[in-house]
């Protein structure tokens, strides 16, 4: 748990997003915003990841993959739902291919709202999560 608090590795999963959140998550991991000061690093693989950032309106095909990725990630693990679509479906809510919200497939720890959220908001979400891990020792 301590290791996660000091250097969380983040994996990003696009579950049917419009790319808006994805480029903002990508921008949030680059030097202009510099999340490495918090130890945050992009993990290439679910088996290396501590935090999964889910973006996008979860469609049925991606929902299955998200659950599989979540199962592959070693515990302790956390999920951040990033953007209006991952939280509630956003503009796509009510569309036929949508499974549901991200938190109906995996347990979500932090919600970052916005369409898309600014990179600062994404980093703030990660920071909030890390603070909570520090206080309670995680789930």
């Amino acid at each position: 748990m301590k290791a996660i608090r000091y250097s969380p590795w983040v994996m990003h999963f696009n579950a049917g997003a419009c790319n808006g959140c994805d480029i903002e998550v990508l921008a949030a991991l680059t030097p202009f915003f510099d999340p490495e000061r918090l130890g945050v690093k992009l993990a290439p693989n679910p088996r290396h990841a501590d935090i999964i950032i889910v973006t996008g309106a979860l469609n049925k095909k991606a929902a299955e993959r998200l659950r599989r990725l979540y199962d592959q990630t070693p515990s302790p693990k956390f999920v951040i739902a990033c953007g209006a679509c991952a939280i509630s479906g956003g503009v796509f809510s009510g569309s036929y291919p949508l499974f549901s919200r991200a938190d109906s497939v995996v347990p979500v720890d932090v919600y970052v709202p916005g369409c898309p959220p600014r990179p600062e908001a994404v980093i703030y979400g990660i920071k909030k999560l890390l603070d909570r891990v520090g206080e309670h020792g995680g789930d």
């Binding site: 049917g16 419009c18 095909k61 991606a62 796509f92 569309s95 036929y96 291919p97 949508l98």
Partner: peptide
Amino acid sequence: TGYNHRGIEKL
């Protein structure tokens, strides 16, 4: 493909 289908034309 199909991992990103959102049914936009219907919407």
